[in-house]
């Protein structure tokens, strides 16, 4: 079921001079319930602007946008968006800057109360949201400002989750996080999507971090959407990434090259480190030979140990042995 439909929407900032290009140009998209979307683009490509259309902060200056049952048509300002905003949770860039209460609990309860929950319901929602981002209840009483950067980011995302949105949109949620926190955050979003059926729309300029997690990729360049589709299709078209000034992830380069050299369709290739390792071992004669050799020759000498560091060295010694 489509929950968001953009029909050729364009957007121009109110204060923009007439010479300035449109922030969004003729964007058409359909987002389905329960999928993980990654919007990828360089700085200034319009990805944040598009994101903020999803809960009506910006409304199109041209075209038509429907989010759930709310229709935004150019020229007609829609008001009374509270019901929509309880369904669409928007996580801004550096969301921890919006934490303001003295305890995590109060910050988490703020949203639900705004949307009409009583104190008890709000507290229950707060606890649930906190657990969902992987923090335990002990955090409720703490001040958000004494937490580490990664923890603050998680709490800030929990404040949006507490209102129980069906669609969660996030603007560069991993920016400035350390690499481990980044991985943990993406895993969390994937869980919310797979286990709870929520729709995730995440903006990033780092394709590598979402390559394994996202179901669909939306590529943006200078206000326009230049690609929408799956990972496999994206791997087949690295030129689109180059045009959009996105760094091609090494995983994609590997997939692309293996597909070309071995004549395997990209769809049959694995993803993620473990997936790739297993696949490569399965599809390599060196691995099976190495296993045979160590199995038959338990007194493998130190020299052979050194040999195995180089694949060419290993092939040669194998040939001599035979």
């Amino acid at each position: 079921m489509a929950i968001v439909t953009c029909e050729q929407i364009s957007y121009q900032y109110a204060k923009a001079s007439i010479h300035q290009p449109l922030a969004l140009i003729d964007v058409s998209l359909r987002l389905e319930q329960g999928k993980f979307y990654a919007i990828v683009g360089a700085t200034g490509s319009g990805k944040s602007t598009l994101l903020q259309h999803l809960n009506g902060i910006y409304q199109p200056t041209k075209g038509k946008l429907q989010v759930y049952d709310v229709v935004f048509a150019a020229g007609a300002k829609v008001k009374g968006l509270k019901p929509l905003r309880s369904r669409v949770g928007l996580v801004f860039q550096f969301p921890e800057q919006q934490l303001f209460e003295e305890t995590v609990e109060k910050d988490l309860m703020f949203g639900p109360i705004q949307f009409g929950a009583d104190e008890q319901q709000a507290r229950a929602a707060a606890v649930e949201a906190l657990l969902a981002v992987g923090l335990d209840e002990a955090f409720m009483a703490r001040s958000p400002f004494e937490l580490s950067g990664g923890q603050m980011r998680k709490v800030a995302i929990a404040t949006v989750l507490a209102s129980n949105p069906e669609l969660i949109v996030l603007d560069e949620p991993t920016a400035t996080l350390d690499p481990v926190s980044r991985t943990e955050l993406i895993a969390l979003l994937k869980r919310l999507c797979v286990e709870q059926g929520r729709t995730i729309v995440m903006v990033t300029h780092r394709l590598d971090e979402v390559l394994a997690a996202a179901d669909e990729f939306i590529l943006m360049q200078q206000g326009a959407v230049t690609y929408t589709g799956t990972r496999a299709d994206l791997i087949r078209s690295p030129h689109l990434l180059q045009a959009a000034d996105i760094v091609v992830p090494n995983e994609m380069k590997l997939a692309h090259e293996i597909s070309e050299r071995l004549g395997i369709v990209v769809d049959e290739l694995p993803s993620g480190i473990e997936g790739w390792a297993d696949w490569l071992i399965h599809n390599s004669d060196a691995a099976s030979k190495a296993v045979d050799r160590y199995a038959t020759d338990s007194s493998a000498s130190q020299q052979e140990q050194t040999d195995k560091a180089s694949p060419r060295g290993m092939t040669e010694s194998d040939e001599k042995g035979e």
Partner: peptide, 28 residues
């Protein structure tokens, strides 16, 4: 990960090097 699972092709942090190390042994 490959080394841990018994397929030691050396440690490579450049993608081109990794490819070169992989090719000789790769088939479907």
């Amino acid at each position: 990960e490959l080394r841990e699972k018994g397929m030691d092709i050396g440690l490579h942090h450049h993608e081109e090097e990794l490819m070169r190390a992989l090719w000789p042994s790769l088939h479907v």
